[in-house]
Design a protein around this nucleic acid. Structure first.
Lengths: 240, 240
DNA sequence: CGAAGGATTGATTAGTCTCAACGCAAGTGG
DNA sequence: CCACTTGCGTTGAGACTAATCAATCCTTCG
C-alpha cells in the first residue's frame, strides 16, 4: 500500500517498526524501479527536513507497522535530543551509500551477481553486523516477491526466477515462505563481490536502533509523539 | 586525477569552480562505475559532516579548478551564515535524487534512452533551469569521453559509440570537442522520458550558486578560507 | 472449491557485449 | 619538422545474456 506519492510534501517522519517498505519511481509508460528498501529501524522520509516535493513514492511491502512523528513533535524531540540531528544525517548518508552500491550493481554486475548481492545486503542489514560466526542462524526474513526483486535489480521476473534457481543449485540458497536461507554466506559474498563497508555498520550501528531508542524512551514527549499506524502491505497498482 | 580515495576520511569541503569531477566505485576485478558527477557550483564532499570513511572515490574529469575549505574554516563560515547548513543539506538531497534517477535509468531505460537522458540532465544542470526558449544556445559543455559515458550508463564504450551515432542521426545531437549540441531539446527529452523535477531546480536554484556566493563574499573569513587548488584532469588508472 | 497471486518452464528473439582492427588528431621528443 | 606515441572514436563479425511471449503449476486464502 502506498504511504507517500511522488509530488507530495512529506508531513511526518516515519520509522519502520516491522515489515518492509520500498521507495520506487515510475516512468510515464509504467516501467517501475525500486530505488530503496526500508527495513525495521530505518527512517522513511529523510528528505523531510528540506521542505521539498518528494521525487519518488513509498509503499509498504506486505504488512508493516510504522511509527509516525509529526513535524511539530519532531522539532520538540530534536530540541530535547541534540545528538539526534546528526544521527538523522548519518542515516541519510548511509542510505545514499546503499544507492551508490545499487548503481554499481545495475551498471556492472551480471544478473546472478545482482541477485546474490541483494541477498547479501539484506541479510547483513537485518543483523546489523558482518556475520563472522558461520553455522548458526543462516537465515533471515525476506519479504520481496520475485517480481519485486526484478524491480530492484533491473531484470525481468522470469530471469530473476532462473537466476534464483541457479543460486539454489550452486550455493544452496533457499528462498521461500518469506525466509531467505544462505548456507555459506562467505561464498555467496565472494560470488557477488559483496563487501559491507558501504553499509557503515560500525559507525551507523547505534543509529539503526534509533526507532527502538525513541520508541522506548521514557522521556514523555517522545512517547506521546508517536502515532503507531498500521498499513496493509500490497503491491501498488501499475500506472496505466 | 584523483581527489579522494575510497576509505579515506574527508578533510575539507571542496567546491567545483570549473571543470567536472566524477565519483566512482570500483569492484575488486577492476570494473568501475561512475556514481555521480560534480559540475561547477557543486559540492564534492557531502559526507564530510559525519566523520566517516568515504565509500567511493572522486576524480577530476580533465582540467578543473576546485576551492577547498578546511574543517575549521567551515565551522566558522557556518556559524557566521546560519542558512548555510540547510543549503548544504539540500544539496545532499538533490544529489541523492539524481542518484535515484540514474538508478532508474540503469534499471529501466534502454541504451539510447540512458545516453539521451544523461545528455538532457547535464544540459539542464548546467543552465540551472528548464530550457523553454528554443532556438538560442542549444549547446553546453560536455567533458566526458565515450568511455566515461559508458561508465556512467553501464554500457560498453563500443555500444555507447553506436548509440551516440543513432542519436546523431535521429535527433541531430552532436558531441565533439568538449561540446554537446542538442538541436531539439524537447524531442530528446521525450525520447529519454526525461523530466527535470528530480533536479529540484526551483528549490535548489540559489544553492547551485553557493560557490559563487561564498567565493565572492566580502566577509573576510570567507575569502581567506578558500584555498584555490589546481588539479590536472586525467583518467584514474584502472586497478590491476 | 474456485480465484488470485506467485513461481516455474519452454521457445524464440532482441539488445548488448566481446574481440579485434583501424582511423584520426593532438601531443611529444628527437 | 617529422616520426612516434597515445588517447579517443569508429567499424565489423559473432557470441551470449537477458527480454519477450505464452503456458502451466503450485500455493494460499476466501
Amino acid at each position: 500500500m502506498d504511504m507517500a506519492r511522488e509530488g507530495e510534501e512529506p508531513q511526518a517522519l516515519r520509522v519502520m517498526l516491522s515489515g518492509w517498505a520500498m521507495r520506487y519511481t515510475q516512468l510515464p509508460d509504467g516501467r517501475r524501479q525500486i530505488v530503496g528498501l526500508c527495513l525495521p529501524g530505518d527512517l522513511c522520509d529523510l528528505d523531510l527536513f528540506t521542505v521539498m516535493r518528494s521525487d519518488h513514492s513509498l509503499a509498504t511491502v506486505r504488512r508493516s507497522t510504522i511509527a509516525e512523528l509529526g513535524l511539530g513533535e519532531l522539532r520538540e524531540v530534536m530540541a530535547a535530543c541534540p545528538g539526534l540531528s546528526q544521527a538523522l544525517c548519518r542515516s541519510e548518508i548511509v542510505s545514499s551509500a546503499i544507492q551508490r552500491e545499487w548503481l554499481t550493481s545495475l551498471g556492472q554486475r551480471s544478473a546472478i551477481e545482482r541477485v546474490a548481492h541483494l541477498f547479501c545486503e539484506l541479510f547483513v542489514r537485518q543483523r546489523g553486523h558482518w556475520p563472522i560466526e558461520a553455522g548458526r542462524s543462516r537465515s533471515c526474513d525476506f519479504f520481496l516477491t520475485q517480481s519485486q526483486i526484478a524491480e530492484v535489480t533491473g531484470l525481468t521476473q522470469v530471469h530473476v526466477n532462473r537466476t534464483v534457481q541457479q543460486l539454489r543449485q550452486s550455493h544452496g540458497v533457499e528462498l521461500r515462505q518469506l525466509r531467505l536461507d544462505i548456507p555459506d554466506f562467505a561464498a555467496l559474498a565472494r560470488r557477488a563481490a559483496f563487501s559491507p563497508q558501504y553499509l557503515h555498520l560500525a559507525e551507523a550501528g547505534p543509529m539503526t536502533a534509533m526507532a527502538e531508542v525513541l520508541f522506548r524512551s521514557a522521556h514523555p514527549p517522545f512517547r506521546e509523539a508517536w502515532l503507531s499506524a498500521m498499513f496493509e502491505g500490497r503491491q501498488p497498482s501499475p500506472a496505466t
